[in-house]
Structures are given as C-alpha cells and as structure tokens.
C-alpha cells in the first residue's frame, strides 16, 4: 500500500489534500465528493498536528489513501498523544452565536463527510481510518 510521510506541519495540508484528491479522482469520485474527502482529510490531519503533536517539534504522520473497489480508504498514523475523535463531544449546532463552541467542529465534519471513521491506538502508534463509498 503506498504510504506518504508528511512533516506534521500545517504547511503540508495543501499536499495532503492534493494526494487525497488525486486518488479520489482516479477512483471516479465526483468533484463534490472530492471536495468533501479533502475537507475530511484536512480536518483529520489538522487535529493530529494540533492535538496529538501539540508542542512536539519535528513530528511526522504517515498517510495512505487507496481505492478498494468503489470505496476510498484513508489512513493516518501518528505517534503523538492519543486523540480519539469518537470521544470528542458533538458541538451544539443550534446554539446562539455567543454560546457556539469553537472546538469539536473538525471532528464533527469528518464524521458527517465520511461513511465511517475509526480510531485505533496500539502502543505508541495511533491510526485513524476514514472510509467513503462512491455515490
């Protein structure tokens, strides 16, 4: 499975989105779906950089992105602080402006945009798997 290792820096989000878009395009996803996949991958990688690797310089994350039949499978592996998206509280989307939560939105979008989001932490290694079937 092709794997690309990216420095855990926000400056590489562009490349991560391009990588996912390329695989999705070849896999026959529509432009609308590709935008959603890029957004989900961006939110996932941003969370790893911001939370899992908070205060840790020179970290990296391994990303794989493959088609399995009509389904795209994106995995992100890091060795930072375990950050399980399923434990993040869903933001209240009906709250007034003054009470809107600033956090939790990225994880919420990931879950809404993908068919399935799984998280596994084994030893030092955390793996996030995101799956979406082509429409």
């Amino acid at each position: 499975m092709p794997k690309i290792t990216y420095p855990a820096k926000f400056e590489f989000l562009d490349e991560i989105r391009d990588f996912v878009a390329e695989v999705a395009r070849q896999g026959g996803f529509s432009d609308k779906e590709i935008y959603s996949l890029q957004l989900a991958a961006d939110e996932a990688a941003s969370n790893i950089i911001e939370h899992a690797y908070e205060g840790i310089p020179d970290a990296s994350l391994d990303i794989t992105c493959t088609m399995q039949g009509d389904t795209i499978v994106i995995t992100m592996r890091d060795e930072g602080i375990s950050f399980d998206p399923s434990k993040v509280k869903q933001p209240n989307l009906k709250a007034k402006l003054s009470e809107r939560q600033i956090g939790g939105l990225g994880v919420y979008l990931m879950r809404k945009l993908m068919d399935d989001v799984r998280y596994e932490s084994v030893g030092k290694s955390n793996t996030l798997t995101m799956i979406k079937r082509r429409a």
Partner: peptide, 19 residues
C-alpha cells in the same frame, strides 16, 4: 476555493466581536 473549519472559526470569532 477552499475553507476548512479553521476558517469557520475565524469567521465565528470575528462575528462575535463585530456584533
């Protein structure tokens, strides 16, 4: 062309300040 939740947060923070 593109905006992630990081951009949404910037809009939200500014809206709070403006209003």
């Amino acid at each position: 062309e593109y905006m992630s939740s990081a951009g949404f947060r910037a809009l939200l923070a500014s809206q709070r300040n403006c209003k």
